[in-house]
Design a protein around this nucleic acid. Structure first.
Lengths: 223, 223
DNA sequence: ACAATATTCCAAAGAAGATTGGAAGATACT
DNA sequence: AGTATCTTCCAATCTTCTTTGGAATATTGT
């Protein structure tokens, strides 16, 4: 094996990480896994992919060292290999957003104008959680809430929100959050709530950003 | 366009950055450009690629916002879009190295055991540049040296080093550096120098790492 | 205008990746 | 052992990416 081959081989190894991130389906899976570990079938449904394809893509991610798998009875649970992966994926997204106007455009197209909804800063919410009156609303699917959520947050999955509006207190300000900066659930929820006269704002960033900021996270059922 | 399409579109945009980094040839071009801006033909020669292919890959990098091009007379000069790109590429390499044992293996295979050569820390070299006696040797090609180098460094391109050994002072410790942590020039140079009785060590990291540490860089011909 | 040089465009061929349906493998429960 | 459930493997197809040689384009200098 000559020097040139060895050099190419080294770059090929580096490229494995890029390859892992080069496919939209895999990126979506990583975002889902940032909410918490999940089984293959479950992930497939959430990402609207076929199970066999989901399995193949997860396997790719595992080969790049981004995710781990463990068996739990009849199912295989995948999760991010460690916290660094989540951070890294966030950096990649931020980097992409910072230099491709198309990212901003696509995000706006998908999420609407989130800035116009006047997002609440994470540290502000952390303060108000202690002393202010505020209802924190987790609009992610129940399983993701159970895997970890902001302490005191109430879970009303986005698809059930319209039906449960009457359960919400009218006078209290509501802060809604979801999977992250590029998740629609919270912005959509805020718009729905405002249409019905509630005083609602989205949180800046979702649970992964909250966790990464070193703020507390509770697991389990709770409320 | 439905919600699902918009979501996929967003992830496709993110994936563009991953795609840009998913190919070994492009990663090598990025590493070369981290040394300084260069023309297409020049890059093609350095990476041992055909010009047409080099042009195509550079175009890909440009579409992902990683590099810029400007025309200088008859040639087109490419460069990294900004300092963030260099840092980002470094992070990707570091991330890959931290979780894929194969990267370590490939690096060792290509570079040999660099740690065994007892690399000099960058801040230590910075101190010794001021008060200690040390010869800093830049073993990169002349053009890269001209584009920017450590102040006071002497340029002896790696392929000319064997022929110029007699020009080097025997008593002084020599610190050699090159393109970065994954460049062979400096480790090879150190081994060659030691074989001929010189007291030589590699710098920890190359010029990009030096620059990123906020240490001074000089451009132009000098020595 | 013409020639020289450098780059990009283009078309074609080959390589690699994505996706699917169905078969095969694991595991748990009866 | 047999059945049900979940996951992976496999083979086939389709798409996308890579690479190449040559033609076309841009710029400079004569």
């Amino acid at each position: 094996m000559d020097e040139r081959t060895r050099k190419t081989n080294l770059y090929e190894q580096f490229a494995r990480v890029g390859k892992a991130l080069s496919n939209p389906a895999r990126l979506e899976l990583l975002d889902l896994l940032a909410q918490g570990e999940r089984g293959v079938e479950d992930l497939a449904e959430a990402a609207r992919m076929k199970v066999s394809n989901t399995s193949a893509q997860l396997r790719e991610l595992a080969r790049a060292g981004l995710v781990d798998a463990r068996r739990d009875g009849v199912r295989v649970i995948y999760r991010l290999a460690d916290e660094q992966v989540e951070e890294f994926v966030g950096q990649v997204q931020g980097f992409a957003a910072s230099r491709l106007a198309e990212v901003e455009h696509a995000a706006r197209d998908y999420l609407g104008d989130v800035a116009a909804l006047d997002p609440v800063a994470r540290d502000e919410l952390a303060r108000r959680l202690r002393d202010g009156r505020v209802l924190v609303l987790d609009v992610r699917p129940e399983a993701e809430y159970a895997a970890g959520h902001i302490p005191g947050a109430v879970n009303v999955p986005h698809d059930l929100l319209a039906a449960r509006l009457t359960d919400l207190p009218a006078g209290t300000e509501i802060v809604a959050y979801c999977r992250g900066r590029y998740c629609v659930f919270a912005p959509d929820a805020v718009r729905l709530l405002r249409d019905h006269g509630f005083d609602a704002r989205p949180l800046d960033g979702g649970l992964p950003e909250w966790r990464r900021s070193g703020l507390p996270v509770t697991a389990g059922a709770e409320a």
